[in-house]
Nucleic acid binder design. Structure first.
Ligand SMILES: [Zn+2]
Ligand SMILES: [Zn+2]
Length: 663
DNA sequence: GGCTCAGGGCCAATA
DNA sequence: TATTGGCCCTGAGCC
């Protein structure tokens, strides 16, 4: 006999109190966010069923510690939810259940309206178009997690209206769209021979309390300020609401260029050619980086007007007398004479600047200049690559060019940081750290819990970890947005089923992040400079992230730094990452392999250009081997979810939550 | 102040 | 026996 959580009618003629038929209310509720069965209401900040509500309450009450016997990615939908408490609880947290999100009292019109719209949409989706997204998104673009909390209700510009009880009665019944997890079928991928990393020991104990109030004000601001609004306008809303955050972002909502209303990805391979807007849209690093963004747009505009580039010999490593301006590593396409004088002089100033960026106005400028720098490079490599290419390799070269251009426009990386720039910044940062210690003295050893509790009661952020966390998480979110855009710019990626796009992104973002940041790590100084210019001491990172993850990052960065990678090759390898199916399940493996094949061809081509004389297969193998080195980072990254401060800052950032939720 | 609706208690069903 | 989940009461909070 199977337990049923479906909503039976609730009219057990109790004590005669006249109530509006509860089943009416239930009809206007989206399915349980945790298990996808019929929700009974809004519990702990999320629409859930009675069962999941009770489960979460008991977990909090008893302070339960769960362990997962498998891979921390068990199916918790439907009746399978009882099979693994760990994963069920993890899912509860992932969808945003929290004691701080408790809402009491009746619905606001807005909240009710949102529910109605969602239910309507689900019903519609059920009728047709199963092929668009078979799985409901993990988190809804307009989900209650972000918008319907009392303190967040002002976000979003929904124009649907709660028409009142009469209209509610007319609403058709919706049953949600519960669906079992797809069968796990590992598709043969290029890296399928690579041993999967053993699952993270499932010994994790969750602290069952997730107060978030002190963060909410901060974290919600982001959404309203960001151009990439999650809350769509009238017309776009119903058409796009089936997209999860991951999917939706890449569609380019909120950017001015966006005009295509269709949720269907463009068909046809190599859509990068036809989608000059998407994927090539300049990045958006949130309000913090608005300056950078404006800066960059102006720059791009000016460049478009000119469009006449010198043609540097890309792969001839020129002796750079003033190498101070540019990275001595990597050597290739970054050359002084190919950058505009204004930019050069600004970069020079930045490099001379010895102050530490953190908390400094300079940070914004850093981002702007680096971004501009990357873009100039991207443009220049375009010109030269097209000139050098000939014959059958034309196409591949063009693909490579596009990849690099798109990547460097969208993703802020530390790849182009000059060596001495990194060490200068880190040295001054270290100095600052020791000065701080000298002035403030050693702080008392507090556990994470104690620190956060103290912070919450006093508002004092003694060692600045809360602030660091805010900065990091904001930057990370911007990164994810850019990553999604970049992925969409990969030839053929947009044509994949949206589910597959999501899976691939979720499986690779951590590695992708690492490859863009590893250059900033310095094990001797025990600190790192992030692509946005922020510096962190290793000890500071321990406070906000999982220790093992931090250590592994430092360790792997050392390995990667030993041998410089050609920036173009790096971009191709990063793109390849997005096509690895060894740790996720895709519906259309063939299509993914097609992309992968193309990228491998690009890699081969690139290696043949840059390293004449070496055995190509050896180099490719080496290149891919390096990839396997960093794969463990992905699962270590999940360990950050054990950090209360991390989890708390994640609340209210649905994109991050979705990205980190189990594949 | 009336009406709604979520939290939490309760307890039968189930594993 | 421990856990699950359906049901109901109470009271908070919207209108
Ligand atoms: Zn549920
Ligand atoms: Zn599990």
């Amino acid at each position: 006999m199977v337990l049923s959580t479906s909503c039976k009618s609730n009219n057990k003629a109790t004590s005669g109190r006249p109530r509006r038929d509860r089943s009416e209310l239930l009809r206007t509720l989206p399915p349980c966010r945790v298990c996808k069965e019929a929700a009974s209401g809004f519990h702990y900040g999320v629409n859930t069923c009675e069962a999941c509500k009770g489960f979460f309450r008991r977990a909090l009450k008893h302070g339960s510690t769960f362990t997962c016997k498998f891979n921390q990615s068990c199916n918790v939908t439907g009746t399978a939810r009882t099979l693994c408490s760990f994963c069920r609880f993890q899912r509860c947290l992932a969808v945003g259940m929290s004691t701080n999100a408790i809402k009491v009292g009746r619905y606001t019109h807005e909240a009710r309206t949102r529910n109605i719209i969602e239910v309507k949409f689900l019903a519609k989706q059920k009728e047709g178009d199963h092929h668009v997204t078979e799985t409901p998104p993990l988190i809804w673009p307009h989900g209650e997690d972000a918008t319907s909390r009392p303190d967040a209700s002002h976000h979003g510009t929904l124009t649907g209206v709660d028409l009142g009880p009469a209209e509610h009665r007319r609403r058709e019944q919706s049953q949600g769209c519960a669906r079992g997890q797809p069968e796990i079928t590992r598709s043969p991928s290029y890296l399928s021979g690579v041993p999967l990393e053993p699952g993270v020991p499932g010994s994790a104990a969750y602290k069952c309390e997730h107060p978030v109030s002190f963060l909410e004000a901060e974290s919600t601001v982001d959404y309203t300020n960001c151009k990439q609004t999650y809350f769509m306008e009238d017309s776009g809303y119903s058409q796009n609401s089936e997209l999860s955050f991951l999917e939706e972002l890449g569609q380019g909502h909120g950017t001015q260029e966006y005009t295509n209303n269709s949720v269907f990805p463009e068909n046809g391979s190599y859509s990068y050619i036809s989608c000059q807007g998407d994927g090539m849209t300049p990045f958006c690093y949130g309000e913090d980086y608005k300056f950078a963004h404006d800066f960059q747009e102006t720059f791009l505009y000016n460049q478009t007007m000119k469009c006449d580039f010198p043609t540097p010999d890309l792969y001839e490593s020129a002796p750079c007398s003033d190498s101070k301006h540019f990275p001595s590593h990597p050597p290739s396409c970054v050359r002084q004479r190919s950058s505009s004088p204004a930019l050069l002089s600004r970069m020079e100033q930045l490099l001379k600047e010895t102050s530490v960026y953190n908390g400094d106005v300079l940070l914004k400028e850093h981002v702007a200049v680096m971004m501009q720098f990357q873009q100039e490079n991207a443009r220049k490599s375009t010109g030269s690559l097209l000139k050098r290419s000939s014959g059958v390799t034309d196409d591949l070269d063009a693909v490579i060019t596009r990849l690099v251009e798109s990547h460097d426009r969208l993703i802020l990386v530390s790849t182009y940081f000059p060596d001495d720039f990194i060490s200068d910044k880190l040295k001054s940062h270290s100095k600052l750290c020791s000065m701080r210690e000298h002035v403030i003295g050693q702080l008392p050893e507090l556990s994470d819990e104690q620190y956060l509790d103290m912070y919450k009661s006093t508002g004092i952020d003694m060692d600045g970890r809360v602030n660091n966390m805010k900065v990091n998480i904001g930057y990370f979110e911007s990164f994810l947005r850019s990553l999604i855009k970049f992925a969409k710019s990969l030839p053929g990626f947009k044509a994949l089923p949206l589910d597959d796009q999501t899976q691939l992104l979720k499986a690779s973002y951590a590695d992708f992040w690492f490859l863009g940041t590893y250059r900033g790590y310095n094990s001797d100084l025990n600190s790192v400079i992030m692509p946005n210019g922020h510096c962190f001491h290793r000890n500071d990172l321990y406070k906000t992230f999982d220790r093992k993850w931090v250590d592994s990052s430092f360790q792997l960065a050392e390995v990667f730094q030993r041998r410089p990678i050609d920036p173009h090759q790096l971009v191709i390898v990063k793109s390849l990452l997005l096509t690895l199916t060894d740790r996720c399940t895709v519906l259309n493996p063939r299509a993914v392999e097609d992309i992968q094949d193309l990228l491998l061809a690009c890699l081969r081509r690139q290696l043949s250009v840059t390293s004449a004389g070496h055995a190509l297969s050896h180099l490719i193998g080496e290149s891919l081997n390096k990839l396997t080195l960093i794969r463990p980072l992905s699962s270590l990254d999940k360990q950050n979810l054990q950090k209360r401060i991390f989890v708390e800052h994640m609340t209210g950032r649905p994109l991050i939550r979705e990205m980190l939720s189990s594949v």
